[in-house]
């Protein structure tokens, strides 16, 4: 009997089904989210997505994928929802719809102590991204960080090391295949916590200009205005009843939205 019930497709029972593109932190596709590596940022996104889906009374099929595939996947309509720390930019607004804000984000350089010492300007304690020359910078493909570094790479004689995931970008740094990694601050926080002390450190000031900072949202296909309204209502309700804040606190020691 249970087997028969389980076999009934969602459409037959009248339950809506959403295809959700979520961010995969690890490089290997087979590595599920929430494994021993504890991708806390992915778990946070997963928990928020589940709560939104529960409030929308829909069944969500989450499919982890690299950041670079999330926006095209949602834009094409293959996924009805994308949850991957997507910064809101005018260019992306042309392609997809954005939900209400989840939180704010900025970007920051991460370097090994050696690379930071090596590239710190003489007589100044402040290392700045725009001052760097002849260095290799690892960035996650499809991100605003990759977009920015690629744009200034030629002028500043920078080598862009593109990676599939943000974790790969840090790994490139740790493996010595990159001098710095330019990462979203929250992802960097979670990844660096997993590293032994002294392995990597933040370098230079936080960056919010040139599309490197702003508000983070869930995204939806252009034609899904009604669904966006539902998602916004769910997020508002989550904030009003404190569910949103509790989910954040489950994965982070502070709200900082």
């Amino acid at each position: 009997m249970l087997l028969v019930l389980a076999a009934v497709p969602a459409a037959a029972t009248g339950t809506r089904e959403l295809q959700v593109a979520t961010l995969r932190m690890a490089a290997t596709e087979n590595t599920p989210s929430g494994n021993v590596e504890s991708d806390a940022i992915a778990d946070l996104n997963d928990a928020l997505t589940r709560e939104v889906c529960r409030r929308l009374a829909v069944r969500c099929n989450q499919q982890p994928m690299p950041f670079a595939e999330i926006i095209p996947g949602v834009e094409s309509g293959r996924f009805q929802l994308g949850v991957g720390n997507v910064l809101r930019t005018p260019e992306r607004e042309e392609r997809v719809l954005f939900s209400n804000m989840l939180w704010r984000s900025s970007s920051r350089l991460v370097g090994t102590p050696q690379s930071i010492r090596k590239h710190r300007p003489e007589g100044s304690s402040e290392l700045r991204l725009e001052s760097l020359r002849n260095v290799r910078i690892a960035v996650e493909r499809g991100t605003q960080q990759q977009r920015y570094v690629s744009r200034v790479a030629a002028d500043n004689r920078l080598a862009v090391v593109e990676t599939t995931t943000v974790k790969d970008a840090l790994q490139q740094l740790l493996d010595g295949r990159a001098d710095f990694a330019l990462m979203p601050i929250r992802s960097a926080y979670f990844l660096m916590l997993q590293q032994p002390a002294g392995a990597a450190d933040f370098a230079g000031p936080a960056l919010t200009e040139q599309g490197l900072g702003g508000t983070v949202h869930m995204i939806l296909p252009k034609g899904e205005q009604a669904l966006r309204s539902e998602v916004d209502a769910a997020l508002d309700a989550m904030r009003r009843d404190g569910t949103f804040q509790r989910i954040i606190r489950r994965y982070m020691p502070f709200l900082a939205d």
Binding site: R104, S105, S106, I185, Y189, F202, A206, T208, A256
Partner: peptide, 15 residues
């Protein structure tokens, strides 16, 4: 210290 850096990098403070 990470949290301090995270907070110091928060756009709300930077604005």
């Amino acid at each position: 210290m990470f949290i301090v850096m995270l907070m110091a990098s928060h756009p709300s403070l930077l604005s």
